[in-house]
Design a protein around this nucleic acid. Structure first.
Lengths: 380, 380
DNA sequence: CTCAAATAATTCAACCAATAAACAAATCCG
DNA sequence: CGGATTTGTTTATTGGTTGAATTATTTGAG
């Protein structure tokens, strides 16, 4: 009921917290940063920072680089940066028409990227996962050939996930209650693609700490980021906006209800309405119906969560210029607070790689959030 | 961007955290609890718990009570309970037709309660607040006569609040940009009534850590509790569900849009639809239109946030038996995950006092969450 | 009635991590 | 070249938890 997260704090937790603090201060700095600057930024002592940095360097999380071009008097600073050859994250994705794997290092750079196109639906969950496991193994092999250590793996799926490793239902893949287990010899954290894509957007550093990412694909999902952390809901099923009711008398939806958002702004509905064959054709179509529906849904999200920024991803990203007016009109009409602080609409920065990149990012974020755990692992 | 809340942790923070941990462990225990049991529950050492408890007793946050009826051998335990005569919270409320104040002690008991009925709209913000300040002073006087120390005050208003002390807009009071400042000689934290009512429900201890409280009054608002903490949104304007779109072609709303929830399930709409004069008359009316609208909105909330419990307060609480079927039908239709884990609908435990009680509760929760801060204040 | 067993709470030395202040290193500038 | 300046390290101190030993208070068995 109360908030003091019922775990005791021992001294070692202090160190764990401060290790994370130092590491993240370095991570958030655009340029290499000195120990002294970290101390100033965090409020810790230079002595403490030095001690912490020693640990982080020994654990291959930070590296010292050439002193930055100097100015003024004084001993030159040694620059600190995230280690490009330390732990890395393995990001995996299975979607309707491809499977993919990538390796992202601590600095956020994609080091390897493997994609296999092909319809995953007829294959079945077992074979699809077996093939993905091979892909994961290959990605891992390449990463280790580079001197990277794969710290973990995460998998993005278009569906509902429970308990971190079971796909409860993925309608568009035809999956039901699929336990993922290990892939490429690593335990895998499974999550919804919209959630992970939201994380990858967060990783750009160009967004406020709270926003909602809307993923437009065959289905429509939302990834909710509050205060810099993904909000998953009680069972991990937050962000299911595809079946928000837009019009109680609207067209029937395969979910059994009527007038769901997907019936107006889902990929298939948009193609049908525009008489278009491919997503590319939509760029020239009239999307006002979809836009108004999407705007109504976004207004609901903003009214409920009071987020100031909405990121549109998936097929919406390239179509945003044509959707913006209709969405904006609904927001202005339906969001009471829009007068005081307008809602920002943005297109996603990453294209189809967003979810996979977010999956890898989730792994490295785990290391960045708990470096002490990583250091303990490496020592063992 | 990252999560390690950019403050360094010094050793004293460890103590502050553990003080809160011990205090809350005692608070969450139904019966008096021994130091040894606290140690077992928290994972701290008995020695540490003893030292922390000494501080908490010295600061009038805990008291030792008679050993509980024993069983078995061994030295009898000294029971610990929250102090009934330590800090107390002053809860204030201004609503359309009354103003009120109450004093709640650490244990959650209402010690004093003052209500003045009367339409607050013609009075204007200034006079209403001045009158409330007198009420607050009187409540505080009575509390201190009991030996209580008023730790702070919070005010519930039916409107949007910014920056903890300014009412941006309260449509039903006719307030616009009202800065509250001090009342009864205390700085006041202002918050939305639905938020505070939600907190009071959380305080019952009978709810899961995540739920949504829906307040049905003239307007409709929601208080969102996630993981035991109120979720306020970026600017504190979360939970504005009164203007969720139910039907794009529905009746026009005073907000400028059409088919808002308030036009179906707001107090005035329900009275009009039922041809009733008072809220009491609704108990016998057909509320299916309101119920379906409410159910549609609740389905949206659940799809978005994945909360498993919805608490209905305000005028909805007594009407829940008549609303339940319609709400449930919409939830079943529109919430994909309802098959796996059904959404619980509950009536609120507290009646009209909920918001005021929650305001007082917010104050004592502040003490419970940061006992170290309170101890520092008392020593000064 | 006395003594062993059991449980509660306190005392005390050890330890861990951060701090503050002094010190060493490396550069700039007059 | 020498003082000023900034970075980074060393060392003694301090705050806070731990673990073991100690004291306190009861039940129950002989």
């Amino acid at each position: 009921m109360m908030t003091a997260s019922s775990a005791p704090v021992r001294q070692s937790s202090v160190r764990a917290h401060n290790l994370a603090l130092v590491l993240q201060t370095v991570a958030n700095s655009a340029d290499p940063i000195s120990r002294a600057a970290v101390a100033a930024a965090t409020g810790l002592t230079r002595a403490t920072v030095s001690a912490l940095v020693d640990d982080l360097i020994a654990g291959k999380l930070l590296v010292e680089v050439e002193p930055a071009p100097r100015s003024g008097a004084g001993r030159p600073a040694a620059g600190l940066r995230l280690a490009p050859d330390g732990p890395a994250g393995l990001g995996l994705e299975i979607n309707v028409d491809y499977r993919a794997a990538c390796v992202v290092d601590l600095t956020g750079r994609i080091r390897h990227r493997l994609v296999e196109a092909g319809d995953q639906r007829p294959v079945g969950a077992g074979s699809a996962l077996a093939a993905l496991s091979l892909l994961a193994t290959e990605a891992r092999r390449r990463a280790e050939a580079d001197g990277l250590t794969v710290a973990g793996a995460a998998l993005a799926v278009p569906g509902l996930v429970t308990g971190d490793d079971t796909v409860r239902i993925a309608p568009n893949l035809g999956w039901l209650d699929v336990a993922v287990g290990e892939l490429g010899g690593l335990p895998v954290a499974v999550d919804n693609e919209a959630n992970l894509a939201a994380l990858s957007e967060l990783g750009t550093g160009e967004l406020p700490p709270s926003f909602v990412y809307i993923s437009g694909e065959i289905g429509i999902g939302a990834g909710i980021v509050l205060d810099g952390a993904l909000f998953r809901g009680v069972r991990g099923w937050s962000g299911e906006i595809g079946h928000l009711a837009i019009d109680p008398d609207g067209p029937p939806c395969r979910c059994g209800a009527r007038g769901c958002l997907e019936q107006y702004a889902g990929q298939e509905a948009m193609l049908r309405a525009a008489g278009a064959a491919t997503v590319a054709d939509l760029a020239a179509a009239d999307l006002s119906t979809a836009g108004h529906a999407l705007g109504t849904a976004i207004a609901a999200v903003v009214n409920l969560l009071d987020v100031g920024t909405v990121v549109l991803g998936g097929i919406y990203a390239p179509l945003l210029p044509r959707l913006r007016d209709a969405i904006g009109a609904e927001i202005d009409r339906r969001v009471l607070t829009a007068d005081w602080s307008p809602v920002q609409l943005r297109a996603a920065s990453y294209g189809p790689d967003a979810a996979m990149r977010g999956a890898a990012g989730a792994v490295i974020r785990g290391v960045l959030d708990d470096p002490a755990g990583w250091l303990a692992r490496t020592r063992a």
